[in-house]
Design a protein around this nucleic acid. Sequence first.
DNA 1: TTTACATATGTTTATTTGTTCATATTATAA
DNA 2: TTATAATATGAACAAATAAACATATGTAAA
Lengths: 101, 101
Amino acid sequence: MEETYKDEAIYALAELFKIFGDPTRIRILYAMLDAERCVNDIAGILQMSQSSVSHQLRILKTSKLVKSRREGKSIFYSLDDEHVRSILNMGMEHIMEGAGK
Amino acid sequence: MEETYKDEAIYALAELFKIFGDPTRIRILYAMLDAERCVNDIAGILQMSQSSVSHQLRILKTSKLVKSRREGKSIFYSLDDEHVRSILNMGMEHIMEGAGK
DNA sequence: TTTACATATGTTTATTTGTTCATATTATAA
DNA sequence: TTATAATATGAACAAATAAACATATGTAAA
């Protein structure tokens, strides 16, 4: 009776943040901050297996945080949305402010 | 060699978002959006055990997302920071935009 | 076709974590 | 002090999930 937001939205919101709540995915997102990247490049940059990167990319894509584009044998991923950048920045601000105390 | 942000910041950022990545904690935060609340009230509003709420509040407080104030036998919790509100709003915007497609 | 390269997808395992139950603090009232 | 109310905390259990490994799909060149 006291709750304002629909349960559906609450769960969707939690799901969204859960995606951001993993260091590997954050690193992947940051790797695509300034340029689109193909899977192999990301795996190389982050020093992790192609499989693991691909699994995480699928999660990021399903959540609409990244989009992909095919070019020959490679598939290039990039941030889907400006909100992704905003959310990352807001979070980073909070972190930095806490560190400055 | 390609990474821009310090690993430390990356992990802190993921940890922060992980806190937001649980429906219960999101509901607790929304319950405190417009007013401070004591533990029992939150438990009542969200229909969950006092213990569970208390556990989650500790996590929220440790992460600097909420602060607390004692008044007699009760302890009132509220959002610690404007960033918390901002992050929630950014996330909700992203959700709503996705739903509008 | 074959072959090779890039990416995706099952499956299993180990770890993380939210809830519950029981118990411990802390503060007020009798 | 004793009793009661509000909150916190420790331990156990079940559910979720990230990584690793093996394999499959798709694309292009030979």
